[in-house]
């Protein structure tokens, strides 16, 4: 299982124009093209998870995540925010890179936790923040995942 297999160019936004954490979560959820109610429920769940502790893991990276009945398969998205967002991250620094991961309660291959783990592993690589900053297209993002082989 490779991280690259879960992402597609249409769920990557390298120019987020949001001003808050909430707006960012909504913007990324919208990339999944769910109906309005499902988007709203998913947003609530992601927000709920954030109230239990920030998913900002430091070095400008956050990984909001949750399981919800409103999705029928594992979905992932990535967003980049040039100015940085207050995510109440562990290192208290602004977040520029947001990986969103959502999954249904029951998955045939149970990939949620392994994918979450791979994103965390990818995020910890020393050069990743700089590489993410330098991306010029969603395609390059996918190439970076492929290159890292996680």
């Amino acid at each position: 299982m490779q991280l690259r297999d879960f992402f597609s160019t249409d769920t990557v936004d390298l120019a987020l124009k949001t001003e808050t954490k909430d707006e960012t979560l909504r913007a990324l959820v919208r990339l999944f093209h769910l109906d309005e109610k499902s988007e709203s429920i998913l947003f609530k769940m992601l927000k709920r998870r954030e109230t239990l502790g920030s998913t900002g893991i430091g070095r400008g990276i956050a990984i909001p995540h949750c399981r919800s009945l409103v999705v029928n398969r594992l979905r992932v998205a990535f967003g980049r925010h040039a100015a940085g967002l207050d995510f109440k991250a562990i290192d208290e620094k602004p977040v520029h890179y947001v990986f969103l991961i959502v999954a249904p309660p029951l998955e045939v291959s149970n990939q949620y936790l392994p994918v979450l783990g791979k994103i965390a592993q990818f995020s910890k690589e020393a050069d990743v923040p700089d590489r993410l900053a330098g991306l010029e297209s969603p395609k390059e993002f996918l190439q970076l995942l492929e290159e890292k082989g996680v």
Binding site: R48, G53, I57, I63, P105, L113
Partner: peptide
Amino acid sequence: QDLHMQRRALEEGDVREFESGVFD
């Protein structure tokens, strides 16, 4: 239902360890 699920997951070893280890 989603909250119940989140709760049950947190009681499991793997998720518990991941959430406290990676996300503090």
